[in-house]
């Protein structure tokens, strides 16, 4: 039997885990000290959320897998995070645009999930939402400064938008998993999230002098079913190295 609840929660966990790991790569490399601290603080929030979601996922699955088992003992094809979050940091503008796209998505998705018929999903969404709100503020402020900054910062931010736009469609795809949860009133209709997402992104871009690329075809891989860009394998190699080399290591 399909365990749609497990699959849905796993997506929420994997998005956070992979993005948190990506962001943590900025540690010690931020453009200045305070921003280094900001990016790693946000990374920590994502790892915290990932840990809580994966624990819930383990419970929903009912096979005694802990959050650590799910993070460290699955292979690439078993990860169901969005491709957007596995994209490399590239430069600061790229990182900020990726965060903005994801943060605004998380904002509207979790806002709806606070009304989920599944109490645990609703509780963790409400808890996470407090963190997501300042993530959105952080990304928005930087998008404005970069987009409406110098010629060079605008150029780099626009390149990031052009490159990353194709990965945003995947956030709103409704498949069997989402449909099953909508039926149970456990998850919202993603089409309604998309409308709100586009509205906020357009507003911010307007102010930031950035443009949404036209006729950019969406990426065709289906990461929600485990098909990823080559980036994920590289992330997992680092993320899982220690527990795979020294199983059940303790300190």
């Amino acid at each position: 039997m399909n365990n749609f609840l497990f699959e849905f929660i796993l997506r929420l966990g994997d998005d956070n885990l992979i993005l948190g790991h990506r962001l943590s790569e900025w540690c010690g490399h931020g453009p200045y000290l305070e921003e280094d601290i900001a990016l790693t603080n946000i990374a920590l929030d994502h790892i915290g959320q990932a840990s809580a979601w994966l624990k819930l996922a383990g419970n929903a699955e009912g096979k005694n897998r802990s959050e650590d088992d799910l993070a460290y003992k699955r292979i690439e094809r078993e990860f169901v995070n969005l491709q957007l979050v596995e994209q490399p940091n590239t430069d600061f503008a790229y990182t900020i645009i990726r965060q903005l796209f994801f943060d605004v998505y998380q904002l509207y998705l979790y806002d709806e999930l606070t009304k989920s018929s599944n109490e645990e999903v609703a509780a963790l969404s409400a808890k996470s939402l407090k963190e997501i709100k300042y993530h959105v503020r952080h990304a928005k402020e930087w998008a404005l400064r970069l987009g409406d900054g110098t010629k060079e910062s605008n150029r780099r931010a626009q390149i990031a938008v052009n490159d990353l736009w194709r990965y945003t469609h995947e956030m709103f795809v409704t498949d069997d998993v989402v449909e099953a949860l909508i039926k149970e009133r456990a998850a919202p209709d993603l089409a309604s999230i998309k409308i709100k997402w586009e509205e906020m992104i357009s507003q911010i871009f307007n102010e930031a002098k950035l443009f949404i690329p036209e006729n950019e075809p969406p990426i065709i891989l289906n990461s929600r079913k485990g098909v990823h860009s080559e980036n994920l394998g590289h992330i997992l190699a680092e993320l899982q190295f220690l527990p795979r080399t020294y199983p059940d290591a303790n300190w």
Binding site: E34, E35, I37, A38, D45
Partner: peptide, 13 residues
């Protein structure tokens, strides 16, 4: 404000 993010998640500078 120096930074919205500080030495721990709960503090700003």
């Amino acid at each position: 404000v120096t930074s919205e993010f500080g030495s721990t998640a709960c503090k700003s500078l």
